[in-house]
């Protein structure tokens, strides 16, 4: 029994340390920050984290192939704006929701096609996509912005639905990446593209799919954010959000060089980062300080992650 426990601990070192950090943080906060441990705040926190966590999960697929996607928040905003536009003009909420997913998948596909087929540099492609998608959202929402949606939408996607969506999406995505042959091929590509090709993996197709997955995840996040404010705006996917997403993934042990990381841990990373924002909000820290403090914490955490992998490497040699 204890042997089994040991092996379990050894194989799950990364998520367990992260869980420990999160638990410690929560315990400390429950004593220092009033209201933090209240049922309301925790469920609020989870639903707030949901959109970032789902986007992080999608971007993790791209990162594991050794790629990069910084267009995720912009795709989120653009697909939501198009969807809300359809909802308010047709009055059909279901159709609009489907449109959100289709648009996000389409924008992801454009990313994927340019990167996998045209062999363009991922950073350049997704940087361009970021500005194009933001531009698209701005044009469609217009100067006066889009109208408010009927309450049925926010009622359906209430915070419990959203938490459920996060858990289900994270579980499914973790399963796909870690347990299926499709996921294994993603790791092969991230580890050694050339060897993957020789082994018979269709690199182009798999890489393209990861950008589509990242796009669809951004779409789901767009639905969640839309329900939150009952409309959609270009500004709901600020470009700085990508920093939160990438750092959540890296804190969760995803390597930006590809080949390493899991959705499960990336989501815990998102929870950690979301938790920090939430706490500062509760303590009434001003927005200016929030970004400053958050940035410092992220650099600190990433420094530790990098130090740890350096040590592991030395041990290996």
């Amino acid at each position: 029994m204890s042997d089994k426990l040991k092996r379990f601990a050894h194989n799950n070192k990364q998520p367990l340390t992260m869980l420990a950090v999160i638990v410690i943080m929560f315990v400390v906060l429950s004593f220092t920050v009033q209201e933090f441990m209240s049922y309301n705040n925790i469920t609020n926190l989870l639903s707030e984290v949901a959109s970032i966590a789902i986007m992080t999960s999608g971007v993790t697929f791209v990162l594991v192939t050794g790629g990069m996607d910084i267009s995720s928040p912009s795709i989120m905003a653009a697909s939501a704006v198009v969807g809300v536009y359809v909802m308010t003009t047709t009055g059909n909420l279901v159709l609009g929701t489907i449109v959100v997913l289709l648009v996000s998948a389409g924008l992801g596909l454009i990313n994927g096609f340019a990167i996998a087929k045209l062999k363009m540099v991922p950073l350049v492609v997704t940087l361009s996509m970021m500005t194009v998608a933001t531009g698209l959202a701005t044009v469609i929402s217009g100067a006066r912005g889009l109208p408010i949606l009927p309450p049925a939408f926010a009622d359906f996607f209430n915070k419990y639905t959203v938490i459920g969506m996060l858990i289900v999406a994270a579980a499914i995505l973790d399963y796909i990446l870690y347990r299926t042959s499709f996921g294994r091929k993603i790791y092969y590509i991230g580890n050694n593209q050339n060897a993957a090709k020789v082994s018979g993996v269709n690199n182009d197709l798999i890489i393209m799919s990861t950008y589509v997955i990242s796009g669809v995840c951004a779409g789901i996040a767009g639905i969640i954010n839309t329900a939150n404010i009952s409309t959609a705006r270009a500004s709901m996917g600020p470009q700085s959000q990508i920093l939160d997403i990438i750092s959540a993934a890296v804190i969760g042990g995803v390597s930006v060089n590809g080949g390493k990381g899991r959705v499960r841990e990336a989501c815990l990373g998102a929870l950690l980062i979301g938790g920090i924002s939430n706490v500062m909000n509760l303590m009434g820290v001003s927005d200016y300080y929030t970004t400053l403090i958050k940035g410092s914490i992220i650099i600190f955490a990433m420094g530790i992650a990098s130090l740890r992998s350096n040590i592991a490497e030395k041990k290996g040699a």
């Binding site: 580890n191 060897a195 020789v198 080949g259």
Partner: peptide, 8 residues
């Protein structure tokens, strides 16, 4: 170069 996945 294209034979092994070294870190796997």
């Amino acid at each position: 170069y294209d034979g092994l996945f070294l870190d796997m």
